[in-house]
């Protein structure tokens, strides 16, 4: 195994593209090192992106949105007051990944690239309509986060691709987001099921626009568009919430495994979507 720590994303991409064997990108390493330890993966090349200038920066974009470098840790996002105020749901999702120790290392980009349907930050990113800045052999391109996961452990990223940053759009007035997950303990578990909701309200308090991401209810994180449609144009009254819960259930295609059952996940997905929607709306009104 070779370890490389390049100084630009282009160089990183070149190293990855040029390696014929198995490669892994190392950002926080909280998934990659577990894979190495278990012997599941025996990479020939590890590319550490943390020494790339800008990889650990959180910056505002020209359009008022946010750009979060691929190596920014969960703890660093949690300590960024402005980002937290703009996207509290995203930040709370990232902050739920692992322990305090894991927070010191884990990244949103890594959480996405790991390809887990239970990844905490991904439903929140999908609800936020986040974009990944991907540097590949043929240059830099934008890819919607929603399009990246393909299945457990698989992504649409290709050989030589490396995510340089995640971008979040600017927030309109009266916007809010929230992320909730269910775990059997209070910490240290992988989400059994989760929901991220981002919405904005009109002046009268009706939902103008909404997006809902659901975690651990299918092979990838689900963009539950029909569930979002069920609350758009409503004041999140009981009927709208009931319709949303029904649409959430339809969007779910979970499995029975050691972490939960089909029945449980489907039910609790609706519960969490409801709670997250109400929390997001409360934040939008604040």
């Amino acid at each position: 195994m070779r370890y490389e720590a390049p100084s630009s994303f282009e160089e990183a991409s070149g190293l990855l593209a040029g390696e014929t064997g198995v490669t892994r990108i190392l950002a926080g390493g909280t998934d990659v090192l577990v894979q190495l330890r278990s012997g599941l993966v025996e990479p020939d090349l590890i590319v550490d992106i943390k020494r790339i200038p800008g990889a650990k920066d959180i910056t505002r974009t020209d359009d008022g949105g946010w750009r979060i470098g691929a190596a920014v840790s969960g703890a660093e996002m949690g300590e960024h007051a402005e980002l937290k105020a703009a996207w509290p749901g995203i930040v709370e999702a990232v902050e739920l990944i692992g322990s305090t120790q894991v927070q010191g290392r884990c990244t949103m980009a890594g959480n996405l690239c790991n390809g887990s349907p239970a990844a905490d930050s991904v439903p929140a990113m999908i609800a936020a309509d986040a974009i990944a800045e991907v540097v590949g052999p043929s240059g830099t391109r934008d890819v919607y986060v929603e399009e990246i996961p393909l299945g457990p452990g698989r992504t649409r990223l290709e050989k030589g691709d490396v995510i340089a940053a995640i971008r979040l759009p600017a927030r309109p007035e009266r916007a809010g987001d929230a992320y909730l997950r269910f775990i059997p303990r209070t910490e240290m578990d992988i989400a059994v099921v989760s929901a991220g909701v981002s919405l904005c309200l009109d002046a009268s308090g009706k939902v103008l626009d909404a997006r809902i991401g659901l975690g651990a209810v299918g092979p990838t994180v689900v963009n539950a568009a029909a569930a979002a449609d069920a609350i758009i144009g409503t004041t999140l009254d009981d009927a709208a919430i009931a319709a949303m819960i029904e649409a959430v259930a339809t969007a779910c295609s979970p499995i029975d495994d050691k972490r939960g059952t089909v029945k449980f996940r489907t039910k609790v997905a609706g519960v969490l979507a409801k709670r997250a929607a109400l929390k997001a709306a409360e934040r939008a009104k604040a």
């Binding site: 720590a5 090192l33 330890r37 550490d48 010191g104």
Partner: peptide, 20 residues
């Protein structure tokens, strides 16, 4: 648990090479 530049991390989740 150890600290890296004052931040708490698990030393099992970090390569020795990353300590540079």
């Amino acid at each position: 648990s150890v600290t890296v530049d004052g931040r708490l991390v698990c030393s099992c989740l970090m390569l020795g090479a990353e300590a540079e």
